Simulated assay, not measured.
Amino acid sequence: MKMREKQAHMNRLWRIAPVAVLLLVALSVMPAAAVEWPTSNGTFIPTANTPRVNIYNNGTYHFTMYNGTGGMNALHVTDSITNYYGDVYTAKPTTGTMYVSDTGGRGGQDEVLLLIAVNSTNSTDISNFAVNVNVSGYQWTDLSGYPPSLDGLMYLSSYNTAYYKGSALNGTYTAANYLNYSSSDVFQRWKFAPLPNYPLFGGQDTTVDQPFKLILIDSQVGTIGNRFTNYGLLNDNGMARIDYAITSNPSSSANITMNAYAYSNVSVGGGTEVNWLNRVNTSTDGPSSGSVYYSSWKITP
C-alpha cells in the first residue's frame, strides 16, 4: 500500500474509533434482549418474593386497572404518618422510610405491593443494585377489602397482637430479582397503570429519560386508611411502613423510584385484583387539587 493510501486508511480508522466506543458504552447500559412488558394492565406480574395472596397459584398478582383513572386517588406514598396524601418527592436519600397510606372509602387495602425501578448511565449501578427492605404494618387473613374493625382503646392491645407485624418482611433484593418477560430483561420508562406510558415518578418525561429495570415485591401487609374508625390509635396511624437501605452504593448517575400498588378482595372496582396505585403527576399536570393528589418517591444518590 502506498504511503498516501496508508495515511488515508489510518485517518478513517481514527474517525471510526470514537463511534465504536460510544456504541460499546450504549450496549453496556442497555442489556441484551431487553423488552418492555407487553401491556400496562390486564396482566399477571410475578413478585420477587413469595406472594402472600397467591390465588392463581403461579406466584403472580393480576393487575387489572381497566377503569381510566379509577383506583388512582385512594393510595399514596408519603414520608410522614400525619400526611395521608403524601407529596411528589424528587430527592430522597438512599436510606430512609416510606409509608403507604389509603384515603379511600373502604378504610384500607388488603395487601400492599412495592415496585422498585432503577436506571443509570453507569451500567454498574444497574448490575450491582441491592436494596434491603423491612416492612412493618397490619396483616389480616380474612381478606374482604376491609380491615378488621377496632372497637376502641380497650381493645387496642389485643388488636395489635392479632394483626400488627413489626417486621412482616425483611429481605434483600438485587439485580437477580429484576422483572423479566419470556426470558428477556424488562427495561422500560413507564409503570403499570390504567393509562399507557404512565410515569414512574412525578415530572418524568417518558420520551426522553433512561429506561428502568423493575423489581416487584409483596410487602406482606395491608394498609389501614384515615376513614377507618380509630385509625389514630394504631401504630403509624395504620399505614404500611417501608424501611429501605440501598446497599450497593449507587453513583450520582443513578435514579431509583418506588411506587405502591394494592390488592383487595372486593366484589366491585376490579375485585380480587390489583386495581389501586399512587397517582403520579406528569410533566403537564398542575398541582394537587380537590380529590386529585399526586405522590411519588424518587431517590437521588
Results as ranks from 00 to 15, higher is better:
residue 1 M to I: 09
residue 1 M to Y: 08
residue 11 N to A: 15
residue 12 R to A: 12
residue 13 L to W: 11
residue 15 R to M: 14
residue 15 R to L: 14
residue 22 L to Q: 13
residue 28 S to A: 11
residue 28 S to R: 09
residue 31 P to C: 11
residue 31 P to E: 09
residue 32 A to L: 07
residue 32 A to I: 03
residue 38 P to C: 11
residue 38 P to L: 06
residue 39 T to C: 03
residue 46 P to D: 10
residue 46 P to F: 07
residue 47 T to C: 11
residue 48 A to R: 00
residue 48 A to V: 04
residue 49 N to T: 00
residue 50 T to W: 00
residue 52 R to V: 02
residue 55 I to Q: 15
residue 57 N to D: 14
residue 57 N to A: 15
residue 60 T to Q: 07
residue 61 Y to M: 06
residue 64 T to R: 05
residue 64 T to F: 03
residue 67 N to G: 09
residue 68 G to K: 01
residue 70 G to K: 09
residue 70 G to L: 10
residue 70 G to R: 10
residue 70 G to C: 09
residue 76 H to Q: 07
residue 77 V to T: 14
residue 89 Y to V: 04
residue 91 A to E: 12
residue 93 P to Y: 08
residue 95 T to G: 10
residue 97 T to V: 15
residue 98 M to Y: 08
residue 98 M to R: 09
residue 99 Y to W: 07
residue 106 R to K: 15
residue 108 G to V: 10
residue 109 Q to Y: 12
residue 113 L to C: 05
residue 114 L to G: 04
residue 115 L to E: 10
residue 115 L to Y: 01
residue 116 I to S: 06
residue 116 I to P: 02
residue 117 A to S: 15
residue 118 V to T: 13
residue 120 S to G: 09
residue 121 T to I: 10
residue 126 I to K: 11
residue 126 I to S: 05
residue 127 S to E: 01
residue 127 S to A: 06
residue 127 S to P: 00
residue 128 N to M: 09
residue 139 Q to Y: 01
residue 141 T to N: 14
residue 143 L to W: 05
residue 147 P to H: 03
residue 147 P to A: 06
residue 148 P to F: 05
residue 148 P to R: 04
residue 152 G to E: 09
residue 153 L to T: 13
residue 157 S to Y: 10
residue 157 S to K: 13
residue 158 S to F: 08
residue 159 Y to S: 06
residue 161 T to N: 14
residue 161 T to V: 00
residue 165 K to C: 07
residue 170 N to T: 10
residue 171 G to L: 06
residue 172 T to R: 10
residue 173 Y to L: 08
residue 173 Y to F: 15
residue 173 Y to N: 04
residue 176 A to C: 03
residue 177 N to L: 09
residue 177 N to V: 10
residue 179 L to C: 13
residue 179 L to H: 12
residue 184 S to H: 12
residue 184 S to G: 06
residue 186 V to W: 01
residue 186 V to G: 11
residue 190 W to E: 05
residue 194 P to E: 05
residue 194 P to Y: 02
residue 195 L to T: 08
residue 196 P to R: 14
residue 197 N to V: 11
residue 202 G to F: 02
residue 204 Q to E: 15
residue 206 T to W: 06
residue 209 D to E: 13
residue 212 F to W: 01
residue 212 F to A: 06
residue 213 K to P: 04
residue 214 L to W: 13
residue 216 L to H: 04
residue 216 L to T: 03
residue 222 G to D: 09
residue 222 G to P: 13
residue 224 I to T: 04
residue 230 N to F: 11
residue 231 Y to S: 12
residue 236 D to R: 11
residue 239 M to S: 08
residue 239 M to R: 08
residue 248 S to A: 10
residue 248 S to E: 07
residue 259 N to Q: 14
residue 260 A to W: 00
residue 263 Y to D: 02
residue 264 S to E: 03
residue 264 S to C: 03
residue 264 S to R: 07
residue 267 S to E: 12
residue 269 G to Y: 02
residue 271 G to D: 13
residue 274 V to P: 04
residue 277 L to R: 06
residue 277 L to K: 00
residue 280 V to E: 01
residue 280 V to T: 08
residue 281 N to C: 12
residue 281 N to P: 02
residue 287 P to K: 04
residue 289 S to K: 08
residue 291 S to P: 14
residue 293 Y to L: 06
residue 294 Y to H: 03
residue 294 Y to M: 01
residue 294 Y to I: 00
residue 295 S to C: 08
residue 295 S to T: 11
residue 296 S to Q: 01
residue 296 S to K: 00
residue 297 W to D: 03
residue 298 K to F: 02
residue 298 K to Y: 05
residue 299 I to N: 01
residue 300 T to W: 00
residue 300 T to E: 02
residue 301 P to K: 05
